[in-house]
Design a protein around this nucleic acid. Structure first.
Lengths: 212, 212
DNA sequence: CATCATTCTAAACGTATGTTTTAAACAGGG
DNA sequence: CCCTGTTTAAAACATACGTTTAGAATGATG
């Protein structure tokens, strides 16, 4: 029944790894199944065998790590909230924004595993026009919606609309940083060296806190 | 020699209009020449006749309005600088950021002509991986470089690197706002209605000023 | 009118794409 | 060993793509 053979699932994972990387660097249409399969060292039919279709492969790439990252965000949120409660205060603005941004930024700067590639993949997925991608987006939107009450608690003078606008701006800074981090060196004529992840995170959080 | 016939240049412009819109909504590869020509009501060969290739068409779409927009930005910059000199002061942070953001945001909200579409096209062009697109980017980068001394004059404590990081963040907020403006309603569960362009501009400028 | 460059049309070319099909190779349980 | 379900392999399919070609239509110029 269930195959213990390792090559089978290995092939599946290898396809996911390769296509994650290719989709991170190019649009959906610019990545061909043949490029994926040849780079992964598997047969052309493997994609349709494991994922049904190219679109199915794309969604599988998304799903593989999405839940984990959003769990990390919510974990940071609740952790900050608990700690704040002990101190008899509310979670600070910086803690909230940091909870939203730290997971993707840390993943982005994590060179070891494929997490960095996945974040770039995610930032690109947001720009795909396919109707399927709207469902992808909705999952992240739901996570951010969980943050709204916390923002309103410490900024009671802001309307819900104001909060949503600011969250939107924060997502903007984040996604653009993800998409164009490699281009900062060009923008700054190489006066910006590569930075540790904490510094990038802090720069982002600082900027977003002040904007909020 | 030079044809006075109007249909010729009309066809050319119509192709530019149509492909500007299609490229604004999808990636380079997802837009086919056949989709462009059929929607423009011209023959399939027209694109290769007028622009040599699909890539040539893409560049022509960019060039058509790029110079004008960057002129508008620099005009606002110098105008603000002149006015400030009369008052014996430096151009304010708000004036600088406003000079960078007002043209694209106003164009974006200009429903009448194709300017709105062009801005979305531009935001997408930044994400194309083709090496030709790097030259496209460099033009805007040069414009922003003209702003750097003005920022440093009023923020002498900032290093050049700090300024570039902040300009980068501003571009991030702008491009993301451009790419996802239609999704704000989803994010806010429709509590954000459509806003006049000045309000959007001011929200953006406020956010960026505070972050700077 | 004849000439000529410009513009438009229709068809074809070669290639690349996503997907399907067919069958072979493989592994484990009876 | 045979059977069964899973995985791999090669080939074919139908379609869509960017581009090219050859020629017709057009309209101004001489």
């Amino acid at each position: 029944m269930k195959s213990r053979k390792s090559t089978g699932q290995d092939a599946r994972e290898r396809i996911l790894d390769v296509s994650e990387e290719l989709f991170a660097n190019g649009s959906f249409d610019s990545v061909s199944i043949r490029a994926v399969t040849s780079k992964a060292g598997v047969n052309l039919s493997a994609v349709n065998y494991y994922f049904g279709s190219k679109q199915g492969l794309f969604q599988s790439v998304y799903v593989r790590r999405a839940t984990l990252m959003n769990h990390e965000r919510l974990h940071l949120l609740y952790e900050a909230d608990e700690k704040a409660k002990v101190d008899g205060r509310d979670a600070s603005l910086r803690e909230l924004i940091s909870a939203m941004l730290t997971p993707p930024i840390f993943w982005l700067c994590d060179e070891e595993k494929g997490f960095s590639v996945y974040i770039r993949f995610l930032a690109r997925a947001y720009l795909e026009e396919s109707s399927d991608m709207d469902n992808v987006l909705r999952q992240e939107v739901d996570v951010f919606a969980r943050f709204v009450p916390y923002f309103q608690k410490i900024k009671p003078d802001l309307s819900e609309e104001d909060v949503y606008w600011r969250i939107h701006f924060i997502m903007g800074v984040m996604h653009h940083t993800i998409n164009h981090l490699h281009r900062i060196s060009m923008l700054s004529h190489n006066s910006c060296k590569k930075r540790p992840r904490e510094e990038i995170r802090d720069r982002l959080v600082d900027f977003c806190c002040d904007g909020f």
